[in-house]
């Protein structure tokens, strides 16, 4: 399967470490799930490696709904990565 586009968003310290609030990228077709996307992103550079470092708790949403590592991705999805929420 060929690559497909995803709209990525980063919030709070993930945004600061990656150095951008978001980006649209083409990911390899073999990436099927959110967990696989996270592993792939963590190898894109030092900022990504820092943002997705092991032991850091990172949450995510797909198309504005909280998601898990097993969530299956589709072309054009909006995928947001962020720390555990701290509102209220």
């Amino acid at each position: 399967m060929s690559g497909y586009p995803l709209h990525l968003l980063y919030f709070a310290w993930l945004r600061e470490r990656i150095g951008a609030g978001g980006e649209t990228i083409a990911v390899p077709g073999e990436i099927a799930t959110l967990g696989e996307l996270r592993d792939w992103l963590s190898q894109r550079g030092p900022g990504y490696a820092s943002a997705f470092a092991a032991g850091k708790t990172v949450r995510a949403a797909v198309n504005q709904v909280f998601a898990t590592p097993e969530t299956v991705l589709h072309p054009g999805d909006e995928v947001a990565f962020f720390p555990p929420v701290t509102g209220g």
Binding site: F11, A12, A61, F66, F82, P83, V85, T86, G87, G88
Partner: peptide
């Protein structure tokens, strides 16, 4: 409402 807001709404404080 405030308990769930603190753990389920996408806000981050700095």
């Amino acid at each position: 409402l405030i308990d769930w807001l603190k753990t389920r709404a996408p806000f981050w404080k700095k």
